[in-house]
């Protein structure tokens, strides 16, 4: 019995499957790149700042001398804004939502770029797979839609519309009100953050597993008598390529869904249930 458990719990010789330890960047002074102490800049924070600088530079370049007929960088930037304007704001919020376009565009582009860092060669770490960015952004969204609701409907009116949705028989409120409270004020920001973070963690984990597996299998090429094992590396490599393509899609989709849900929440706070 003990022997069996020992066999099950011991990893196979030579190969170690990557786990959550590949996300360990914080709290280790050895990983500090700039500065020292708990607030030093390590790889993840550096990437966040670099992505912010890159996005800012991109938009500044695009609109430094805007032309009537968009060309090159300006065309790309306008296309990005147009995705959010048409696909999110006008679709979900209508023309009333246009004041939120800068916020939503920033969310979309920032998340997309930080998701895509996981696929860009040599960087290959999605900063959104650390919970910090999703948590911060979800908190921001939570703040924004609550403030919008309070400003548009008044503090009490907003609470009443959220907790006591009209058109429900009075006794059911015993059931509805706690559910609405939990789902609006707790579940919304939590799921918003976890959806993004979990997707990126899972994606990065899968890519790492196939990359490590690929490397491990191909390394048998130089092992006398076991070089046939390297043949299986082809499958691992094919899956790695496929999953990388899939992650390109996921990076965009998660940014889009985050923006879309933000728009839905803000729109819900602007116009109470009709």
């Amino acid at each position: 019995m003990t022997g069996l458990l020992a066999v099950l719990s011991t990893p196979p010789e030579g190969f170690h499957a990557p786990g959550t330890e590949i996300f360990q960047y914080a709290g280790n002074p050895e990983l500090c790149l700039i500065g020292s102490g708990p607030l030093c800049i390590q790889k993840v924070t550096l990437l966040m700042l670099l992505s912010a600088v890159a996005i800012s530079a991109f938009f500044l370049m695009a609109f430094r001398a805007p032309r009537l007929v968009p060309r090159g960088v300006q065309g790309v930037a306008e296309g990005l804004v147009d995705i959010v304007r048409r696909g999110v704001v006008l679709e979900v919020m209508g023309p009333d939502g246009l004041p939120f376009l800068p916020l939503l565009t920033t969310l979309f582009v920032f998340i997309w770029v930080n998701n895509s860092l996981g696929i860009i060669p040599l960087i290959q770490f999605p900063t959104t797979s650390r919970m910090a960015i999703p948590a911060v952004l979800a908190g921001l969204v939570w703040l924004v839609f609550n403030v919008v609701g309070i400003v548009k409907q008044g503090g009490l009116g907003y609470l009443k519309n959220v907790l006591f949705p009209p058109g429900v028989p009075a006794p059911i409120y015993v059931l509805v009100t706690p559910i609405e409270f939990v789902s609006t004020f707790l579940v919304r920001p939590l799921t918003l953050a976890v959806r993004l973070g979990a997707n990126m963690i899972a994606g990065h984990l899968i890519l790492t597993i196939f990359a490590v597996g690929c490397w491990y299998l191909f390394s048998h090429l130089w092992t006398p008598g076991a070089d046939w094992v390297a043949g299986f590396g082809v499958f691992s490599f094919a899956l790695l390529v496929f999953m990388t393509g899939f992650e390109v899609l996921v990076a965009f989709l998660q940014a889009y869904i985050f923006t879309m849900l933000t728009a839905v929440y803000i729109a819900g706070a602007m116009h109470p249930e009709h």
Partner: peptide, 13 residues
């Protein structure tokens, strides 16, 4: 979430 990353993430955003 890690505190330092939250601070820098907020800054970046």
């Amino acid at each position: 979430p890690d505190l330092a990353e939250m601070i820098f993430g907020t800054l970046a955003f």
